[in-house]
Design a protein around this nucleic acid. Structure first.
Lengths: 173, 173
DNA sequence: GCGGGTCACTCATTAGATTAGTAATCTACT
DNA sequence: AGTAGATTACTAATCTAATGAGTGACCCGC
């Protein structure tokens, strides 16, 4: 997500001896041409920042990055280990380890499923819920406070922009 | 950053036998009270999505997540290994390995620094620059296209919102 | 009541990070 | 000019968290 604007390591039309002077490096050429607007730059700054949130909280909470993502899922509702694995994009073997580590730290409990003897429900403990939310709530509160300074007409414009950004990102995901 | 809205695993005022009925779980209570607006939900959807971009591209490019981040930095300008380590938030030992792996795949070259005998410049090869930009350009192009459908007054509102979001996130980072 | 599918888990291996420590080189001070 | 302290790049040993492969328990439709 970093800014590909300008590439000091290479001239736009630079050519090594023996190469054709305008050798086709289409993406490089495209990016060198490109001057994006202020709003787009701010959006990209936000997207870059968003990538740092997870790892940063995980460090402070002293859990792995994937473990934090598991905790975030578990804040919403209990999941089985395999279900977690699917949502996290890891193997069920990895998920077993994730639940082991979270259980060892007292963040979750394994509870047998009521009707299906194969299943286990991984349930967040109250203390873990409080801790996870304790990390997230300040951000959500600050976002809500910021959001409240916009009237409905403005929010509608912003929402259209944000949905546009989501669609754009979905093109490469 | 998944949605902490609603917590089916626990009643808002639920209390285990022997506990005080309204035991203080302040963050949980706060979140249970909270109904956030549509725009905020869309913003959070965007932030969640942003976290997936890096890993998804790294998978396709068949490089590690940190290696991709290094490549993104190197698209902008050459860096020394230690400089990379600082920007990536890893140790210099890890950075040595990152550069090793990128070099082995032909994505970067190590070039001796012109004046400082201690230093190495890690330089992106043209093919790697093209490849990295090839993954990013479609998204940037789509974002620019979307951005172009907004007039200046609208962009100003959006920009204020985005800057507000950046500030909010910075409170917990 | 059997067979295919699912779930949770274990084991061995691998990728990628850490800590600790080294040699080479640069820079500031006397 | 000589030297002390910083900085750079790297190596070695170790740790963590992932993978792939495979196991046994259990569910459900035929």
């Amino acid at each position: 997500m970093s800014d590909p604007q300008s590439s000091p390591g290479r001239e736009a039309t630079g050519a090594a001896p023996g190469e054709r002077p305008d050798s086709p490096l289409p993406h490089t050429a495209f990016v060198n041409e490109w001057r994006s607007g202020q709003t787009l730059l701010v959006l990209r700054e936000l997207l870059d920042l968003a990538e740092q949130v997870g790892p940063s909280i995980a460090r402070r909470a002293e859990v792995g990055h994937t473990e934090l993502r598991a905790l975030e899922l578990l804040v919403r509702s209990p999941h089985g280990p395999v279900e977690l694995a699917r949502e996290l994009g890891v193997t069920s073997a990895a998920s077993s380890g994730i639940v082991d580590r979270l259980e060892a730290r007292g963040h979750v409990r394994r509870v047998a499923h009521a009707t299906d003897g194969r299943r286990t429900q991984v349930v967040l403990t109250d203390s873990a819920r409080e801790e996870v939310l304790g990390y997230l709530v300040p951000m959500f509160a600050a976002l809500a406070q910021m959001d409240a300074t916009f009237d409905d007409a403005e929010k509608q414009i912003v929402e259209r922009y944000l949905r546009g950004a989501i669609d754009a990102i979905h093109r490469i995901i």
